[in-house]
Write a protein that binds this DNA or RNA. Structure first.
Lengths: 144, 144
DNA sequence: GGCAATTTGACAACGATTCTCACTCGCAGT
DNA sequence: ACTGCGAGTGAGAATCGTTGTCAAATTGCC
C-alpha cells in the first residue's frame, strides 16, 4: 500500500506541494548527497556518505527521506540485482537494462517505442497510472 | 581409500549441464510446481504450494533449487517491486502480463513489436541468446 | 550390499528495511 | 522572543527474505 494519507493537519493554506513537509537539515543533507553523487546509490551508501561528510543523519531517517522523495517523484528508485533499493537524482530518462547472463555486464537502453506500446496496451484495456518493468537478457560478445 | 574408487570418470560424456546433479524428489517437485503455476512466483510461494500439495520440501531446499535452475538458465529470475526474487518457468509462449495494482486482475498481452525491439537492441549490442521479461502495472477500470 | 559424495532440512545467522517510541525542533500564534 | 503542538528524528527492536551450517538421510555406483 502506498497510502499517502496524513492526519487532518489543519495547517492548510500555504505552499502547494510542500504541505506539511519541513525542510530540515537532514532532508536537505540527503537530497544534497544524492545530487552530488550521480548514478544509483542505496540508502546505506547515502547514509555512509553523509557520515563521512560529518552531516550525521540517522539511518532510519535516510530511508524515510529517500522513500518520500521517491514517492514525490523527485528521485527514481529501482532495485539492484541483489534486491536492494537504489536511488538516483531524477531527470534522466526512463530506461531498461540489457544484462549479460555470464558476466553480468549491463547496458542501459532506451525505448520510446516500448514506452508508447505499454501505454497503448494498458489504455486499450482501460488500465490507468501505468508503469512497467522490462529487462533483456543475453550473452554479451565477450562471453560468446 | 582415496584413489581406489574412481567415480564415473568420463562416463558417457554427454550429461554436460547435469554433472553431479541428482534428480531427487524435491528437485522434481520444485520444477514441477513452477511449471504448473505459470507467471512469476517467489521461493516462499513455491514452498507453500508444495506444502499444500503434500510434497513437503524444506524452504532452504526450495531456495537452492530455484537458484540452481536459474543459474542453469532453465528458469527466469527477476525481482518484484518489493525486492523479492521471483521465478518463472522459461520457454512458455511469449506473452506478458498487464496487472492491476489493486485487485491483481491480470490480462495476458502479446507484443510482436516488443519482441522485435528487444531482439534488435540486443543484436545491436552484440548480445546473443536473447530473452526478456516485461510486466505492465496499472489500475484496472473496475478499481478506478 | 555397502560406501562416499551429494542433498536435505531444521535452525541459526544475516543484511536490508520498517516499526516503535521517547525526545527534539521548526513553525505559527501570542 | 516565548510557547505549544505536531512533524521529524534517532537508536534500537522487530520483520522478513535469503543464505550458511551441519548432522542425518538419500542416491549412484562399485
Amino acid at each position: 500500500m502506498t497510502s499517502t494519507d496524513r492526519p487532518p493537519a489543519g495547517t492548510a493554506g500555504k505552499g502547494a506541494e510542500l504541505s506539511g513537509v519541513r525542510p530540515t537539515r537532514q532532508r536537505l543533507a540527503v537530497a544534497d548527497a544524492l545530487s552530488d553523487a550521480d548514478g544509483f546509490h542505496s540508502a546505506q551508501e547515502i547514509h555512509e556518505l553523509l557520515g563521512r561528510r560529518g552531516e550525521s543523519v540517522g539511518l532510519a531517517t535516510v530511508y524515510r527521506t529517500l522513500q518520500r522523495l521517491a514517492d514525490a517523484g523527485e528521485i527514481d528508485m529501482m532495485r539492484s540485482e541483489d534486491g536492494e533499493a537504489i536511488y538516483r537524482r531524477c531527470s534522466m530518462t526512463h530506461h531498461h537494462h540489457l544484462v549479460c547472463r555470464s558476466c553480468g555486464r549491463t547496458v542501459e537502453v532506451e525505448g520510446p517505442a516500448v514506452e508508447r506500446w505499454t501505454t497503448a496496451i494498458a489504455d486499450e484495456h482501460g488500465y490507468a497510472e501505468v508503469s512497467h518493468t522490462l529487462e533483456i537478457f543475453g550473452t554479451c560478445p565477450d562471453c560468446r
